[in-house]
Design a protein around this nucleic acid. Structure first.
Lengths: 340, 340
DNA sequence: TATGTATGTTAAATCGTTTTAGCAAGGTGA
DNA sequence: TCACCTTGCTAAAACGATTTAACATACATA
């Protein structure tokens, strides 16, 4: 097990100082007037022995890590997994690596993760924040650390964010149901105060109200295992026998909802029309195929990483905070088609 | 933006040496005979000012990072996302953090990732290795770094691994099809030499051969976009008109396969029986529901993290390499039921 | 000759920890 | 009194990079 080389080993082997090696390795040869001959010699040697500087030592000295901390609600949620994958790629292409972690929407855990990331000197943060974390993020921001929020934002906190127009997305979806003749439109969401959930609910309520209809909202507990969700939904459907359509406010609610509907034996769209949030292979392949509110995952990832890279590069130049709001797209499929 | 405290600041404030603070913070107070009074005073102060040691500096000095590097094929594949999620949790509970990255099955990229992880001094590696990476992993192992492979292994390399019994899983699945009267059984896989794919193929071939049937194997290119896969599968199904059943060797092939079958207008299981790999909400909810070879994700994650923690703790005590092989489970659903 | 300036390189401080080796003061036994 | 423990603490050297400030040397200018 041979010891890893250090910059000093290189310097000794070549009978020069470690400073010189460092300058060359950091592309400061010109600036520091190192002779071309020496530069070439060092570069060749470094290449030959496959030397790579220890990034810990570098980070310790410079305070920079070239690492971005990514905190999503749960990496096993396909929406977040896809975003993470895209962000990872784009970051990688720009010389950054990603440390990710799932917050589980748990404030304490998130707080700990932020602390860990800070200790590790990550250069920037990408966060889909849980409730109750606003102070921690505020203190990050006021410490001058680049932060970009996505999927939801924190009202009252001036920080870059990327979200979709949640209000408009459910508003349009519900209008679409109404247009095709539905009147008893249910809305299944989680009991979360996060902005994206509140906005989705508000969009639903607005559409319902505009048409003088009665709302039928079911909020299930956050962070429940699917079996429990299904039990609650079953009870809801049993109670609300008149529903002719239903909108699910998240992808996992949609999946549990479809299982529930199948268990109960309701017919889609004959008995009930369905619209789900986030597109998914499952919704496309389902029989009947399920109408979905599709988030522009690619654009979200793009916007997020661009905002962050901007902050990272512009350094301290205090650009105004940006709040990017992207449109979602209603993909109409069989589950919401057909006359009444 | 106030500067972060260092252990030296603490020491100065209390008029003691940083050594003492370090000893106390690392639980060596007893061993180093620091007086209880002082221990208490330091602990209180540290708590009050919320000091947390800089883990970069610590890692630089100790060579340990309490970080595990996790490299999966792609985090957007639900199988890997789930495993990653579980591993992350278990690692977290044991004081370890995870840095993950997707390899894309790209050898070069994987090599770079390993290098990055080494630079960052990760304490251990969990890898679902792409082809052609055996030398790099061998050199990790021979450097005494804890490594656990999963999902596949590298023949000829003596290193801990966790896999499922891929051979047995497809063997049984195909036998099941034969038992229910199928004779023209197709097998869709990818053109990969990775062990898990080869074993799945071998299990299929063995069952086919035992019954004197003719194999119908289609290998699609690795790393293709779904649209292309579907195009190839369409051609395959058009050519092999006699197929009465099909086994998909991965979850994403299953999904593309189902889309293809739907496009072509084949009836499941009337025209064709279907068995897919990896269970998935989609397979459960599909109409008809799809029989799936379900990997024990929880047990896999458990085994992986246990093996790794073992290595990490036992230190240099050279325990014999372990190769855990877990059974997969055939979940029989409607897509493979019904008489001929 | 003295002064300035461009060129090429480096010594040493620094980042914030851990760890080795050892110091001072007080007690104990002979 | 001397030699030797114990107790309680600390100085200083790592870890491996970056960066500041400076040092020679050569050459040109006045």
């Amino acid at each position: 097990m041979k010891k890893r080389l250090s910059i000093l080993d290189i310097a000794n082997s070549l009978d020069i100082s470690s400073t010189t090696v460092s300058f060359i390795l950091n592309g400061k040869a010109k600036e520091k007037r190192i002779s071309d001959k020496l530069v070439e010699k060092v570069e060749k040697y470094v290449e030959d022995v496959g030397f790579r500087p220890n990034s810990l030592a570098r980070s310790l000295r410079t305070g920079k890590s070239n690492i971005i901390g990514l905190m999503v609600e749960s990496i096993s949620n396909p929406f977040f997994a896809n975003i993470a994958r895209l962000i990872e790629n784009k970051a990688y292409n720009n010389g950054y690596k990603i440390i990710y972690s799932s917050t589980d929407n748990d404030t304490t855990r998130t707080r700990e993760l932020i602390r860990m990331f800070r200790e590790r000197h990550v250069d920037g943060y990408i966060i889909s924040p849980p409730e109750g974390i606003v102070d921690d993020i505020a203190s990050l921001v006021s410490a001058g650390v680049p932060v970009v929020l996505f999927d939801r934002y924190l009202p009252g906190l001036d920080v870059d964010s990327v979200t979709i127009d949640n209000f408009e997305s459910t508003y349009k979806a519900v209008k679409d149901l109404i247009r095709s003749g539905r009147r008893n439109i249910g809305f299944i969401t989680v009991d979360s105060l996060q902005t994206q959930m509140q906005d989705r609910l508000a969009g639903y309520e607005k559409a319902i109200e505009e048409h003088g209809l009665a709302p039928h909202v079911k909020e299930v507990d956050f962070n429940q295992i699917p079996e429990k969700v299904i039990r609650h939904l079953t009870a809801f459907f049993r109670k609300e026998k008149d529903l002719d359509s239903i909108v699910f406010a998240t992808n996992y609610l949609g999946i549990s909802g479809l299982k529930t509907i199948r268990n109960i034996g309701l017919n889609i769209p004959g008995d009930i029309s369905v619209i789900a949030f986030d597109d998914h292979d499952l919704f496309e392949l389902h029989n009947p195929s399920i109408t979905a509110i599709s988030q522009p995952v690619d654009e979200i990832a793009d916007a997020v990483i661009n905002l962050l890279l901007n902050k990272l590069n512009k350094g301290s130049k205090p650009r105004k905070e940006q709040n990017v709001v992207l449109p979602a797209h209603l993909i109409v499929r069989d589950s919401s088609k057909g006359a009444k």
